[in-house]
C-alpha cells in the first residue's frame, strides 16, 4: 500500500502541490486525474523520489521511501521516446540493469514480455525501425521489466490503436490480479471509469475530490435521466423539475431536482410528448470531471 500524507511542493513562490493525501491499495488501480498543469506530474515525481517534497510524507508498505525503493517502482512517463539508434534488446537490458536485475534475468524478462506483447521479431532491430505503437510497447516493457510492486503509468493508452490498447489494458489488469499497486494518470475518463476503483481529482495543485469512484458518483448528485424524444425537443422552462438539460441528436440528458422521482417525471412527460427511450443514468466520470473543474475554477 502506498500512502501519501499532506504532500506539499513549492517551486520558489508557486505552490505546485498543495496538501495532497492519497492512499493506493494493492490490487486496485488508483486514478490520478486532473486537467493539464494541475500538479499530477509533480505529485508523481515526488512519489517517484525524483524531487523532494517541501513537506509531507510518502510511505510504501509501511516504510518511508529509501534508495531500495528505486528497484521496486516502475514508471511510464507521459511523453514517449527511447534511444532511437539503439537496439531493442540493448535498451531493455539497460533499463533492467538500472533496476538492479542482472544481465541474464534482464534478457529473460525482456524476451518474455516481447513475446507476450507480440513483438519478439523486433528484438534485434533498432528502435527507430519500429512503428510508433511498437516503440511504446518497448517503453512499457522497459517500465515493467523488473516486475515492480508499485507501478505508475502516465497516459499509458495514448498512441495505441484499439487492438494494442486492449493488449495494454489486459497487461495492466494482469498486474492488478497479481496484487500490485498501480497509479494511473490519464485524461481518458472512459478508461479511468472502467479501470479505477479509487480516484483523486486535482486542480491547481489541490484535491477537488477523492475516494471510491462509486461513492463519488453517488454523492455527485445522481438524479439524472436520459430520454429519447420523437419529434421536437423540450426546453428547461417547460418543466420546473429540470435543473439542467443537454440535448443531443438522438436523446437528451436531463438532470432533475433532487426531490423529483424520475418515474413521476416520466408520467408527466408522456402526457405531453412522445417518448421512445427512458433510462436512469449515473453521472459519467467525464461529466463529474468537467463540472467539478469548472466549479473549482469559478471559485478561484
Amino acid at each position: 500500500m502506498l500512502i501519501v500524507n499532506n504532500l506539499v511542493k513549492k517551486f520558489n513562490t508557486t505552490l505546485a502541490v498543495n496538501n495532497i493525501s492519497l492512499k493506493v491499495r494493492p490490487g486496485k488501480i488508483f486514478g490520478l486525474l486532473g486537467p493539464n498543469g494541475a500538479g499530477k506530474t509533480t505529485t508523481i515525481r515526488t512519489i517517484l523520489n525524483i524531487i523532494k517534497p517541501t513537506s509531507g510524507e510518502i510511505i510504501f508498505d509501511g516504510n518511508p521511501i529509501t534508495y531500495e525503493y528505486y528497484n521496486i517502482i516502475g514508471y511510464l512517463p507521459e511523453e514517449r521516446g527511447l534511444y532511437k539508434r539503439s537496439k531493442v534488446i540493448d535498451v531493455l537490458i539497460y533499463f533492467g540493469v538500472l533496476k538492479n536485475l542482472n544481465v541474464r534475468d534482464a534478457i529473460n524478462f525482456a524476451d518474455y514480455w516481447l513475446k507476450k506483447l507480440n513483438i519478439l521479431e523486433y528484438r534485434d532491430k533498432r528502435i527507430e525501425q519500429l512503428s510508433k505503437g511498437n516503440q511504446q510497447k518497448i517503453q512499457l516493457i522497459a517500465a515493467i521489466i523488473h516486475n515492480p510492486s508499485l507501478l505508475i503509468l502516465d497516459e499509458p493508452f495514448t498512441g495505441f490503436d484499439p487492438i494494442n490498447q486492449q493488449e495494454v489494458k489486459d497487461l495492466i489488469l494482469s498486474f492488478v490480479s497479481e496484487g500490485k499497486t498501480i497509479i494511473l494518470s490519464t485524461h481518458q475518463m472512459e478508461l479511468a471509469e472502467k479501470l479505477c476503483e479509487d480516484i483523486l481529482l486535482i486542480d491547481n495543485g489541490s484535491a477537488v475530490t477523492s475516494g471510491n469512484l462509486t461513492d463519488i458518483k453517488k454523492n455527485f448528485g445522481g438524479n439524472n435521466i436520459r430520454v429519447g424524444l420523437a419529434g421536437r425537443l423540450i426546453s428547461q422552462n417547460q418543466f420546473p423539475e429540470i435543473v439542467k438539460i443537454d440535448n443531443y441528436n438522438n436523446y437528451s440528458d436531463i438532470q432533475l431536482r433532487d426531490e423529483i422521482v424520475p418515474s413521476e417525471f416520466l408520467k408527466k412527460l408522456i402526457g405531453k410528448i412522445e417518448v421512445n427511450h427512458f433510462s436512469i443514468i449515473e453521472p459519467t466520470l467525464n461529466k463529474i470531471f468537467i463540472d467539478l473543474i469548472k466549479k473549482n475554477s469559478n471559485n478561484i
Partner: peptide, 9 residues
C-alpha cells in the same frame, strides 16, 4: 522524458 525513467531508477 527518458531522463525521468532513468532517475526513477
Amino acid at each position: 522524458r527518458l531522463i525521468e525513467m532513468l532517475i526513477s531508477s
